[in-house]
Design a protein around this nucleic acid. Structure first.
Lengths: 189, 189
DNA sequence: CGAGGCCTTGACCGCGGTCAATGCCCGTGG
DNA sequence: CCACGGGCATTGACCGCGGTCAAGGCCTCG
């Protein structure tokens, strides 16, 4: 049941079996129903999640009440409201299960304990941060350069899963366009 | 002459004098004229820069030939085309001196050597990545939620230096609005 | 002194957002 | 099992933000 998580960790760093056990002992499983929130605006992000089955999304709500999705995490991916996790300040972002899901979490304290206990964990965190940075920067560049249609095209190419699996509402929120515009785009393609 | 750099490093991590010397030995100074490029599109980002005097900017050019600035680094700040530095792939981004500048650089290889040699350097990199991530994510959120006027207002509050010191062209590029729009905004405030 | 770059201002217009109406699908309870 | 209600998707009408194009003035540097 922890297999996916083990595979993921081993794909990033080299650790002994003992170390692996220590690492795993910090992760706890949780089951989630669709739409359940793991973190809301104003709370401090104290946990990082690994998705076993289902899907989580990280999003925030603008002053006008629209939601904007920053990230979807499917099976085998990590996710958290990273800014708040790093700064320990109240989070702008929400974390929500998009479908019924089974996830594992490690607490912020646990995560930082591991940085002290397991030398390789620092490398794990490095890789996590690097990935998060690259993903986010690419996303920033897309928003600065692409119009609605181009954003949708890019999504179709680079993340067809998202389009296949999620509702228009979710997709529109991820592309930061209105549902109506997305609907019109789809009918034209 | 290396004082600023020393202060910066000491503010981030605790190192012995010997370690500090090792670290500094990896940094080389360069003088730059205004508009000089340190990296252009298609090259791999092999260096990270620390600004002693002057200002660097990181930007990229869209298909329509507009430039969009991702980051300004003033005195006492680090800067690089981080995505390319991390991935070792050709950079989308350019690095340019906005003014006559004096900077120090460390090469990608040097940087990774230090990760092996100086245990604390891993922590330095961690802090660097965390900052870069937080900055970029906040920026992404601004672009998703604010209109032109609000972006300008936010800039005035959070980075008045940029407004005071740089040309309208630079500011507009940073806010990702046209020079004309910025000009109209300024006249209204 | 001339040329080129930057800033400003006006005219125009297109992308994409909002509002509203309608249809569809699905889950829930009588 | 069917009826109803609520959420999601589609489509049309409208319009405003901000971009482009163009002209004119100013400053700087060679």
């Amino acid at each position: 049941m922890y297999d996916q998580l083990v595979d993921y960790i081993k794909s990033k760093i080299t650790v002994s079996e003992q170390e692996l056990e220590v690492i795993l002992s910090y992760f706890k499983p949780v089951k989630l129903k669709k739409n359940e929130l793991l973190l809301t605006h104003g709370q401090t992000s104290q946990r990082t999640f690994f998705v076993g089955t289902g899907c989580l999304r990280i999003f925030f709500i603008t002053e006008e009440g629209q939601d904007a999705t920053r990230y979807f995490a499917f099976e085998g991916q990590f996710a958290t409201a990273l800014v708040s996790f790093i700064t320990s300040e109240p989070s702008e972002e929400f974390i929500q299960a998009v479908e019924d899901s089974e996830v594992f979490y490690i607490t912020h304290n646990g995560f930082y304990d591991l940085l002290e206990i397991i030398p390789q964990w620092e490398k794990f965190y490095r890789s996590y941060l690097e990935n998060a940075y690259v993903t986010n920067t690419r996303r920033l560049m897309s928003f600065l350069t692409l119009d609605a249609k181009e954003k949708y095209r890019q999504l179709l190419e680079e993340n067809p899963d998202i389009v296949r699996r999620l509702s228009n509402k979710m997709i529109a929120s991820y592309l930061n366009i209105s549902q109506e515009t997305l609907s019109r785009l789809k009918s034209k393609i």
